[in-house]
Every structure is written in structure tokens, then in C-alpha cells.
Design a binder for these strands. Structure first.
Lengths: 304, 304
DNA sequence: CTGTTAGCGCCTTCAC
DNA sequence: GTGAAGGCGCTAACAG
């Protein structure tokens, strides 16, 4: 019988199966944008675990646009995805639209860009360890005036960086100077503005830690325009360890590796656990917060 | 009645609708990789048109792996997508797996990386115009010895570049020299090898056109290691006009813009036409080949 | 253990 | 016009 079926080229109809089983084997993934390798790597990790487990991935970008993010949430829900993996847009400050998933009992795991909501599951980098290494590294090179160009305050990632920064300074007995903490909206202009603020200080920093490599590249470009000798007058360190910086003239001396691929894997694995558990719920809800350790990668010994 | 439905928060079940309508409103997109902005831009174009027309996009990467590409083709088919948009992997040399879609009557539009198959629909750049501009530009700066680092020969994109190159040289009355045409598998090593071949020639080229900006960056890196003064001793021109090159020390002087976003839009629009027509087929199959004109963008006047 | 059947949620058809 | 019913392709439950 199976022979005949195979001969006739029979193929089960997924739509019918989904319909019948009340599950689609589809998971939705929302990332801010795919034009940053960090998110592509996370997606790669997600895909690899998902495909291995016969899940189909619905991948889409909010493009850091809140309206679009809301529409995508809606679209995912009406596609009846079995679960969601989300990294929020940098402009997202209200989280009502994510409540929808709770209502439909669709498990959600946030990653990297985590909203400031109670009772959520998430996977992120533990930046504290990486920042400590970074400050230790800079301190070892006798830097005492270390600045931080941070990201938007609504992102947990920014709060983490700020806290980690202050703690690590303390551990290295370096006095925290508020004027050395500036912020950017992650745009080229915002970062240029932040860098100019730092350069206009009476006492300029001798080292700058940037929110990520793209911010670092913009900051470096700005610094060069002001005739700063990059990694001589001011040493740059950043987050994400993007390979693209290798091609730039003055890459940051070191970058905090956040293991995006592994973040993707872990997020997908956690989501599968939650989807499996779904239905036969335990009476006490347990929230999972997975933190992957970060690590400072020293990129090159040319200068600094 | 509708009021009540809305009040109760009724939501149609997509799975049931798909099942019943024998269409899923899903389209599959296979790209080689998302770590190149070119493909991200194409995807953006696709998404924008797709969402506007209530299509869900199943986006996935072959990662330039033929096995994976085959698996994705299979997965897409068993998800019963209504249509496919495909850019093939650089290693794809046999096209049997794409025949599957014909069998299931799923329309396919290829884009950018087009297989060498008969009877296919595709959207691509008309590179000839851009290459002509590029050679004209170089010729205007008195370059007579212009080399081409081309991509894998199985890609139509490579054949286009080769042909366009030869034609444009002829038009500018520059003699074509076979030794000035080298190839790369697009890897850093392959490109380095190609560049070394060019540098080892008795008569070195004074200008190099690279397959794309990533190849250009690798070639430039290699050239610098050989103490070539980039854009002085050898002028670099490339394809794709990726913004990332702005951050590099010596970006190519010019790049041929291929309008990836528009390619994505056009590909999706064409696919929708084909999906609509599906079923009530015209007796004579018509193959659509859309060619978007490319254009040389001169990036900077610093040197060259 | 194998074979039959009911029904998932929607849309389309047909009867009224 | 409105309303009831059949069936899409599959699976799970149940009968033989």
C-alpha cells in the first residue's frame, strides 16, 4: 500500500494536518533588522534547531518601527504560529501588543532586545562579565578616563551596559564620571552627536566603549573627522564582535563577543520546551531567564 | 451578528481557510545568505509588496549549501506555498530540485542568482549598462589595463559580467586581455588568490572591477598587503554599492548599483501575476525576464 | 491489529 | 435575500 502511495507521488497536505491537529509547526521570529550580522547569526541558530525539529520559521523584520512590529504580531497570531521568538524594536516602549500572545496561549521567548515586562521568558547575554573584562583590559593599559556610548534607555540591553559599566569601574577603582556616559539612538547622527559631546569635554576620555560595532564605527568616523588618532588618542572597544569591522581602517581594539548563534539556539530550545509543556500546564508558571556569558575578544595588536 | 463576533474576539482560523481554499497565501523565499545587505534589501522589497497583498513570507537561507537548498525546496513544497522566489546558491550546478515546483504547478520567479535553465521566470539587473558606465569612467581616467575578478562561472551573473565586460572594452577601443580576467569562488581565500594572480602578471592592471563589494574589500585587503596603493596604483570598482564600504579605509572608487529593493518588489509583483493566472492558464506559456537597469555610482572624489 | 467513520472550521453551493 | 448542508484531507477514536 505504501508502495503504491509512493509510486503515485502522494504527499500529505500540511494545511489539512495543521487544521486537524490544531497546531501549525510554525514559529514566528521578529527581529529589528537583518542588516546587522548579529541578528543574522541569531537567526541561523534558530533555524538550525528549528529545522532539526521539523519546525517552519516565519522570519520577519520590524525595521525598528513600532507600527510594523504591531502588524507583524497580528499577522503571526492570525497565522496561528505555535510559538514566538522576539527581539523588540529600539523604539518600542509599550508592550501591550505582546499581551496578545498570552491571550492566545502562544509561548513567547524574547532574545537580546528584551522588553521591560514582568513574567516573560528570555535569552540574553550576560554583559557584566564581558564589560568587566573590557574595563580590566583598558585599566591594564592605564586608561582611567573611560566613556560609554550607550543605546536607548528603554532597552534592557542599555540598562545592563550601564550597570555593568558602573560596577566594573568600581571593581577597578576607577571613579565613575557622569559626563562620560552619553547615549545614542543608534543612528549615525545620534552617535556622531554623542561622540562630539565627549570630545567637547574639558577632560576628554582616553577610551570609549560603544554600544555595538556599528555605533563604534560611526563614533570612530566622527572622531577621525576631529583629527583624533583612533586607538592612540582614544582607544575604542565595542560589543558584538562583528566580522565586518575587520575591513575598516581603525577597528575597535577589542569587542565583547555575545555569541549570537548560541543565543538563537538556546532561545529556540527554550521555546520548544514551552510549546511542549503547553496544554498540560504546571500549576505554577516558571519564567526562564537564560543568560549566556559574554567574553572580550581582543582583535588586533597593531595599536591601542 | 458581526458585532457579537467582534465582541467575542472571534478570529478566523487560517489553517482551516488554507485547507479549504487550497491555497495558503504563503510564498517561499530562498536566498543564499542574509549576511549580505544586497539580499536583505531584496527581501525588504519582497516583504513590502507581499504584506501589502496579504501574503505571508517564508524566508530562509541556503547558506550557499546545495544540500540545504534541496531540503528547503522540499520543505517549501510540503508547506504548500503558493509561489516561490529563489536566488540560487553559488554552488548550485544542477537544477533538478527546482523541477519539483513545476510538477506541483507552483510558480517560481528567480532573482539575481539565476540558474541556467530554460523556461524560467526571472528578475535581474541588466549589468551591461552599469559595466559600460564603469569602463567608460575608467577609460576617461586613462585606464587601459582593466581587470575583472569574476564570480563562479555557473552563475548567470558571472556570465553577464564577462560578456558586458568584453563588450564595453570593445566599445571603448580597449583590447581584451584574457589574463586580466580571473575568477573567485567568492571566499576570502579565493579572492586573495585571484588578486595575487593579477599582481603576479608582468603587466599589472591599473584598474580592477570586482564581482561585488565584498570581493572588492577582500581584493583590496590583499592588495594592501602587497603594498599596492589602493586607488592610486590600482583603482577599484565593484558591484552592489553596499553602504558598509563607506566605513572601510579604501573603498572602491565606484560601484554599480543594482537596485536590490526594486528587484525584490518586481520579483514579488511578477510572482503575484503568475499566481493569479495559475489555474486558468493561457495555452501558450510566456516566460518573463525582467531586467532592471544598473547604474554606476561614483562614491568619492578623494582619490583614484 | 486492521478497517471504518466522525469531525476538525470554514466556504461554497443549493434550497428555500 | 437568508439559512442549512456538504465536503475539503487528514487523524484519532472506535468497532470489528
Amino acid at each position: 500500500v505504501n508502495q503504491l502511495a509512493a509510486d503515485l507521488g502522494y504527499e500529505p497536505n500540511n494545511a489539512a494536518i495543521h487544521f486537524k491537529q490544531k497546531r501549525t509547526s510554525m514559529i514566528g521570529v521578529i527581529v529589528p533588522r537583518l542588516s546587522q550580522d548579529f541578528f543574522v547569526s541569531v537567526v541561523n541558530g534558530i533555524e538550525d534547531i528549528a529545522y532539526k525539529n521539523k519546525y517552519t520559521v516565519l522570519l520577519c523584520q520590524s525595521r525598528d518601527n513600532v507600527e510594523r512590529e504591531k502588524q507583524l504580531v497580528d499577522a503571526m497570531k492570525s497565522n496561528r504560529v505555535d510559538g514566538m521568538l522576539i527581539s523588540i524594536s529600539k523604539n518600542t516602549r509599550t508592550y501591550d501588543h505582546f499581551e496578545l500572545f498570552k491571550k492566545y496561549n502562544i509561548p513567547v521567548v524574547f532574545f537580546d532586545r528584551i522588553p521591560n515586562m514582568p513574567d516573560i521568558h528570555y535569552v540574553a547575554s550576560d554583559l557584566k562579565s564581558g564589560i568587566e573584562e573590557a574595563i580590566g583590559f583598558l585599566s591594564g593599559r592605564n586608561h582611567k578616563n573611560i566613556a560609554l556610548i550607550n543605546g536607548p534607555e528603554n532597552l534592557m540591553a542599555s540598562q545592563e551596559r550601564r550597570e555593568g559599566f558602573e560596577i566594573a569601574l568600581k571593581k577597578n577603582r576607577i571613579k565613575f564620571q557622569p559626563s562620560f556616559m552619553v547615549g545614542t539612538d543608534l543612528s549615525k547622527e545620534g552617535t556622531g552627536q554623542a561622540m562630539k559631546t565627549l570630545l567637547s569635554l574639558k577632560k576628554r576620555p582616553t577610551a570609549v566603549i560603544a554600544f555595538n560595532d556599528y555605533v563604534a564605527m560611526d563614533a570612530i568616523q566622527c572622531a577621525r573627522k576631529s583629527n583624533i588618532r583612533v586607538n592612540k588618542d582614544i582607544t575604542f572597544v565595542s560589543f558584538a564582535n562583528e566580522t565586518i569591522t575587520e575591513y575598516t581602517e581603525n577597528p575597535p581594539v577589542a569587542s565583547i563577543e555575545q555569541f549570537p548563534y548560541q543565543q538563537g539556539e538556546k532561545a529556540m530550545e527554550l521555546l520548544m520546551q514551552l510549546m511542549e509543556k503547553n496544554g498540560r500546564e504546571s500549576p505554577v508558571a516558571i519564567m526562564h531567564h537564560l543568560l549566556l556569558q559574554s567574553r572580550l575578544v581582543i582583535r588586533d595588536s597593531r595599536n591601542g
